[in-house]
Design a protein around this nucleic acid. Sequence first.
DNA 1: TGGGCAAAGATTGTATACGATCTGCTTTCA
DNA 2: TGAAAGCAGATCGTATACAATCTTTGCCCA
Lengths: 232, 232
Amino acid sequence: MSLLVKDTALKPASSADEIVVRLTEAVHEHRILPGMKLSEDEVGDVFGVSRTVVRQALRALSHGGLVSIERNRGAFVAKPSIKEAREVFEARALLEPQTARAAAERATPADVAILESHIEEEHAALASGEAGRALNLSGLFHVEIARIADQATIEAFIRQLVSRSSLVIALYWRRRSALCESHAHHALLDTFRANDPDKAEDIMKGHLVDLISQLDLRDMPKETKSLRDALS
Amino acid sequence: MSLLVKDTALKPASSADEIVVRLTEAVHEHRILPGMKLSEDEVGDVFGVSRTVVRQALRALSHGGLVSIERNRGAFVAKPSIKEAREVFEARALLEPQTARAAAERATPADVAILESHIEEEHAALASGEAGRALNLSGLFHVEIARIADQATIEAFIRQLVSRSSLVIALYWRRRSALCESHAHHALLDTFRANDPDKAEDIMKGHLVDLISQLDLRDMPKETKSLRDALS
DNA sequence: TGGGCAAAGATTGTATACGATCTGCTTTCA
DNA sequence: TGAAAGCAGATCGTATACAATCTTTGCCCA
């Protein structure tokens, strides 16, 4: 499946990290969907490396919760359950508002400029029909806030949660066609410009609530769920 | 260095996870100290497996922040900087109080019993001079709370933070002889018995503050710091 | 005709081998 | 005598080979 990446032979993909980055990007942009099998041989062929390094990459991704490895069965892109989906956003609700507050306190004009460029890129991607890329950039916006807050540890957690959110969105998003063009990111940007921590915290809290509300996390009848699973 | 584990030949240590668990335990119990080198060959010899599986284990530990891998130099038990130490406890401050609240709401008598046994074991370990084991159990108490809260995602984060806290304690604990015998765990247990979320949240918040206050995280003169670093 | 068993194929788990890189010591020259 | 270059040893990074396990398919028998 050469649809994993656009350019297979351009970069030598020296280390396993390269593969991790590429696969992560592909998942974030929904070019690889939850449940898809990631065969070691196949990935190795695509990136031109041996299984050894592919395995390293897959293990790394599994630690981030992006893929699940089943013994003697292989690696698959993770399919978060509804419970896991809720948990991811509950964790984000604990971490991100406070982080946005800290970021608003510390944000410099340079930081604001970086966030602005993020939003611009996201807008451009949406305009050119690259919905996946826009979604990825939208997630990176949240990670960038943690970086501005100067909290590397929390940043790593948020990065992981944003990652898994991308899977959740792929699985449970209500209307695929509807653009996730919320004003929240612009509003956050304003609070950073004004160094207004209180407002930043509030807006982030509301933004996360909005995100959850756009998901369909109702417990479906189990039979339907398992049937759909069996047919996939 | 056979001091890594007590019994080398008893268990075959089939998978890499076994090694991860053993090494993690050893670090938590301060039998392995920050900065110590974890040679692949050496660890492989101790556990009777090849470097392949040792490398898997070390990579896994590095993703958890417990060891740091330097390219072409090897794996070392991580030595969190003062900044990282602060970050770890700031992250805990964001996650754990709310988690304790949720746990207090949900805690059943069975859950309380488990926590009680934790405290008992910890006390017994202290009495028999196994300070390291007591410390480890003390950390697991926090992880158990996340499990009671039924938040697997947050539990994984807290597990990681507790892990790194163990390194921080090894590096920055003020008085090595002083027992970390705080009443906090008993008090938390009471709030779980009474299903008192508000109090649980408060106590956890205070407990974490107490923990930080027992660390010596003052910025030392940089020359001393770098000198000591260079000499280590 | 349907269910169960068995063998073949495919895929992962582990070990070993070889090449690359770093560290520390020795040697040599100014 | 000191410093720099080079060599030897050790350790890590990657590829390949073999063993273990699972899945599938085809056959046989009730």
